[in-house]
């Protein structure tokens, strides 16, 4: 990069990064096989532990913003207690997860 000069803002941002391995991997369709540790959820978009690139950039964050939707919709049945069967009262102690997230219980089925 030392012989090139950035002329727009995006190029300047790339310039600031010392290491751009991850940027070279994206966008998703051209990513090499990402590493998903065992037990991690693979494909739902976004993923729970990892996004389609095997990183966290595509995750829903803060997770608390969307948590109750996941619970009510049973979208992540192995990661979030489901309202339909296992934990109908999970959200009883907090009206908004983003505000009252300290009251959320860990559920052991």
């Amino acid at each position: 990069m030392k012989h090139l000069k950035s002329i727009n803002r995006k190029a300047a941002r790339i310039d600031r990064q010392a290491d751009v391995v991850a940027l070279q991997q994206g966008p998703p369709q051209q990513a090499p096989a990402p590493h998903f540790p065992l037990g991690c959820t693979l494909i739902f978009s976004p993923g729970w532990e990892a996004d389609r690139n095997g990183g966290t950039a595509g995750l829903c964050t803060p997770v608390e913003r969307d948590l109750f939707d996941c619970h009510a919709g049973c979208f992540w049945p192995a990661q979030v207690p489901d309202q339909l069967n296992h934990a109908p009262d999970w959200t009883a102690k907090c009206a908004s997860a983003q505000k009252d997230w300290r009251k959320i219980d860990l559920v052991f089925p």
Binding site: T56, L59, A78, Q79, V80, L106, V107
Partner: peptide
């Protein structure tokens, strides 16, 4: 090595 620091699990089937 790559390290992924990610979300907790809110349910634990252990």
């Amino acid at each position: 090595a790559h390290l992924l620091v990610t979300m907790p699990l809110y349910v634990k089937f252990d």
